[in-house]
């Protein structure tokens, strides 16, 4: 139910400083945020990835994104929209109740109709991403957004650290 939401909220408050702290903090929060419910799905999925026995040295997508929390990320959508912002968090599965989000989600994404979006802080999941607005780039229509939750359905590419370079 609201379990996932609580988890995300807490992570946001924790303003992490370094990456290692971010990751452990994130796991901690998920562990605490579970409110006695069954094991949080993110933890399950992270341990699931250890099952990729045949090539342990390879770089897992979820790990890469996990390491990106707290730093800049460039999100390229399936269409022609792109977002830049700071990743605040993500989940691997849709482990939150969608209805409890949907109102806010619709409200804050209304300005996403523009071609190009620059954001300052992003909270992101396979299902949702939350962003804080700022900055600009050139040549394209840019919408500054405050924090948003982004639905992961339409994400095509994630570029850690990268921001679009207008040549």
């Amino acid at each position: 139910m609201v379990v996932g939401w609580l988890g995300l909220r807490r992570r946001r408050e924790s303003a992490p400083t370094n990456i290692a702290a971010t990751i452990s903090q994130r796991r901690l929060n998920f562990a605490n945020g579970g409110k006695g419910k069954s094991k949080p799905k993110v933890l399950q999925s992270l341990s699931l990835t250890h099952g990729m026995a045949h090539n342990p040295s390879q770089l897992l997508p979820s790990e890469l994104i996990d390491r990106c929390i707290g730093s800049k990320i460039w999100v390229i959508m399936k269409g022609d929209k792109e977002l830049v912002g700071t990743l605040k968090g993500f989940d691997v599965y849709v482990n939150m109740e969608q209805w409890s989000f949907s109102e806010w989600y619709r409200g804050s994404l209304a300005s996403l109709r523009d071609d190009y979006v620059c954001v300052e802080r992003v909270k992101f999941s396979h299902s949702f991403m939350e962003v804080d607005a700022e900055i600009t780039a050139e040549g394209r229509r840019i919408t500054k957004l405050d924090q948003i939750l982004l639905n992961g359905n339409n994400i095509a590419i994630l570029v850690p650290g990268g921001s679009p370079d207008p040549e």
Binding site: P61, L64, G152, I155, L158, V159
Partner: peptide, 10 residues
Amino acid sequence: LGLIVCRGTA
């Protein structure tokens, strides 16, 4: 683009 993640669903 450099180092990227392509979403599996896409």
